[in-house]
Design a protein around this nucleic acid. Structure first.
Lengths: 260, 260
DNA sequence: TATCATTTGTTCGTATGTATC
DNA sequence: CGATACATACGAACAAATGAT
């Protein structure tokens, strides 16, 4: 067999590229088996470590997944299954969020506000106060595990005793407490993504290092004062976030907190 | 030195875990140099391939980046620099989107609607029509490269000649054409993330295989009929998406297109 | 400017363990 | 049980980029 490879560029990359092209072109059906390492060795005239490195590239690209003793298989490029509707509904004075079931009892800890949380809550790092952090492990209707963290600054909790007493209640109740305290609520959400750290991978039950979607949702009260912050981690491979976008009058502009 | 490692679990993983913990604990400052491979070999009593594999893990986790001849360095865990405001503003009958500058002349191709695009545009795969695809290469204010694709089904283009003649104009103009045709516009946006394929990596100028954010924005016209679809790819490491969330009356619910 | 030590990148060979069929 | 296939680990060599001498 011995397909030809050019020297200057890394051989494992060339092999990975060819296989990636072939997968995208549909030469390997989703779910079908990739050539085994031994086959790659023969086909391209490379050594075993080189063949392994090529397949490893495909793995980190998320194109294939390898199973001990069975082989490497082309991953289905299915559009993510579970759609997380990030819209907030209101019936009268009550706010609702899409259904997710709690997996375990939430853990409440006390943390110091730093980094992105301090920034989003409008607290300069130097004199940021402490906050309650309620960590939830949730499961969507489709079975995707997600971790959710609700962060309530002490300054807010002290104004609303109900929050200080039970910071780990579901979100609709938290919104209700805020609304009952006289706040007119609005929200701002930020989305990014990254590869999970080992412990995050474990929490979400991810076998590989495929990316996770991270959303920060800030709840604003009266006078656009940031009250609380939520952080949601969801495996990107099996979830997509959905937003309704309603056009705003160009005049009404929320002052951004660009204090970096 | 020779720190002790337990056998059962992979040694390269244990080393990667320890280094990841140390980085998270702040023992290695962002931007500082990680121990060199030779140092890791001595410290943990492992071989070079094992040390390399450990560092490779940290790379795919996005914790470090390696430079040929210099070493591996802890990446700044900065919250992504450029915030992409995904809100749509309206002044009178004109719609606006946040500023992005065009890098190259958009390329227009004719494609067949399949997969997620067909699904989002409400066309069953079996008898989906063709569509114009305008591929833009954009640059945000902060210099992050993004690729944007606007997909206009032929059925829509034939109703609105202006779109058929120039499908590659900026988005506000496209929205204007749709509005001028009598449509009351609304939007729905879906967000997911994944590791880029080799060619996407090249387009966005990404050196590593860090994830990209993918958004699909569907524009609906009168009677909630899906008109066009946009797809945006942005490097997750340097961008975050921002959404305003306004609560909706629980009664008014958009019928979802769950026809999978 | 040229040389050299350091450091990562690539590739080979080899061996053993272990899951799957 | 044996064949196949991936996972882990070691050793060795050379290439290439970098920074300092």
């Amino acid at each position: 067999m011995q397909d030809d490879l050019i020297r200057p560029t890394a051989m494992y990359m060339q092999v990975a590229d060819r296989l990636a092209q072939a997968i995208k072109a549909g030469e390997y059906e989703p779910g079908s088996k990739l050539p085994s390492e031994t086959e790659l060795i023969e086909r391209y005239g490379i050594s075993r470590p080189t063949a392994r490195q090529a397949v490893a590239e495909l793995r980190t690209m998320g194109l294939v997944e390898s199973h001990h003793g069975r082989g490497s298989f082309v991953r289905r490029q299915t559009p993510p299954a579970s759609t997380l509707e990030r819209t907030i509904t209101r019936t009268g004075k009550r706010y609702g969020v899409p259904n997710m079931t709690e997996k375990e009892k939430p853990a409440v800890t006390r943390i110091h506000l730093i980094g992105i949380h301090a920034e989003l809550l409008g607290r300069p790092e130097e004199d940021a106060d402490d906050a309650f952090s309620a960590d939830h492990l949730m499961i969507s209707e489709t079975g995707a595990r997600m971790s959710q963290r609700v962060i309530i600054p002490l300054s807010v909790a002290s104004e609303i005793p109900a929050l200080a007493e039970a910071p780990d209640v579901p979100l609709p109740e938290i919104y209700a407490h805020l609304a009952d305290a006289g706040h007119a609520l609005s929200w701002h959400e930020f989305v990014t993504a990254r590869t999970p750290l080992p412990d995050e991978r474990q929490v979400l039950g991810l076998s590989d290092s495929s990316p996770i979607l991270i959303t920060y949702r800030v709840t604003y009260g009266t006078d656009d004062r940031p009250l609380i912050c939520e952080e949601l981690h969801a495996p990107a491979a099996s979830s997509r976030l959905a937003y309704r976008i309603a056009p705003e009058r160009a005049a009404t502009k929320r002052p951004r907190q660009d204090r970096s």
